[in-house]
Amino acid sequence: MEKNNPEEFKVPFSPLLIGRYKMIKKIGKGSYGSVYKVEDIKDRKTATTPDSPKKYFAVKKMKLPANRLKIQGIDFTTLREINILQEIKHENIIPLVDVFHINRSTFMVMELMKSDLSKLMFSRTITLTIPHIKCIMLQIFYGLKELHKNWIIHRDLTPNNLLISEDGVLKFSDFGLSRFFASNNRPMTQNVVTLHYRAPEILFGANYYGPQIDIFSAGCILGGLLLRGTLFCGRNDIDQMSQIFKIMGTPSEETWEGVTNLPHYVEFEETPPQSFRILFPGIDEDLANLLEGLLVLDPNKRLTVEQCINHPFFNKSPDSCDPDELPMDDIS
C-alpha cells in the first residue's frame, strides 16, 4: 500500500511552516519523530524595534505510523502530550507554544532548550559536585511534584527526557506515555518507561501502579549521577530485574507484600540487599538513605515526592547550587 502511494503521507516540508516558522536545522530524532530548530518570523514582523532579538523555537514533528492501516488520525501520544503541556504550567515542565497540522502530520512548537541531562550525566569532562547533584535532583522532584499533584504519571522519566535550558533550568519533556492516575481501579500497560529506568512492579507485570514508578526512575537517575553511567543496565526484563535485585536484594513476601501475586512474578536466586555506602564509597549516610528510599522494591514503601523534597540530604551542608551554576558551558 505504502509502495503504491509513496507520496501520500509525505509532508511537504517547506522552509516556512504555516507561513510563520522558518526552518533552521534538524536538531534531534527519536521514536516520536524529529525535532527542528525554527525561527518565529511573525514575531520579528510584529516586533516594535527592528533590532529586537530573533526568537527561536523547537518544532517537534510527530512521526506517522509506517503502516497506513494503523493511521488513526492524531496519534494518542501526541494527543496526551499536547493536553498535558497545555494544562501544566511550571518552571520545570517544558512550555508548549503552538500546535499546527500540515497534511496528516502534527507539529508542536516548544521552547528551545540547550541540552538534556544525559549529556551532563555521561560527559567525561564535566565534574558534578554534591551541590550540582542536589540542584538537579531538587528540580526533578519539583517537576514530579507538580505532575503528581495534577494526577499525572510521567512514565518515561529518563535523562534524555529531562531537558536543560541555557541557564541550567531542568524541564520535563516527552509526555507521550504520561497518563492520569486518579483512579486506582483501572489497569495500565507495562510497556512504559525505558527499560533501564523501569520500576520492579512494572517488570513483574503489575496492572495497577502509581506515581511511585516515577520515583524509582528518579532513583535510577540519582544513582546514574553518582555513577556517571546507567545504574541498572539490563539487556532484557529478566536481566534488568536481576541487576536491580543484586543491589536491592531479592523481594519476598516479607519485604514486599503481594509480590508473588504479580502476573509476571518469577523467583530469583536469593540475594541480600547491599548498602549504597559500599557501592558508592564516600557518599554520606543521608544520600545513601535517600537513594535507598527511592529504589525500595515495594512501591508502597517508596518515598513520596514530598518526602524526597524534605529529605535531610537537601537540608544539610553543602547547599544546593543555583541552576545557573550548573556546568553548562562544557556541554556541546
Binding site: 492501516l69 488513526q72 492524531i74 494518542f76 494527543l79 496526551r80 489497569p187 500497560t189 512504559v192
Partner: peptide
C-alpha cells in the same frame, strides 16, 4: 469517542477507524 479513547482509555486501546 475516538478522541476520548485516545486520551483516556486504557493504554494502546485506541480503536482504529475501521
Amino acid at each position: 469517542l475516538n478522541i476520548a479513547a485516545k486520551f483516556d482509555s486504557l493504554d494502546l486501546n485506541a480503536p482504529y477507524p475501521s
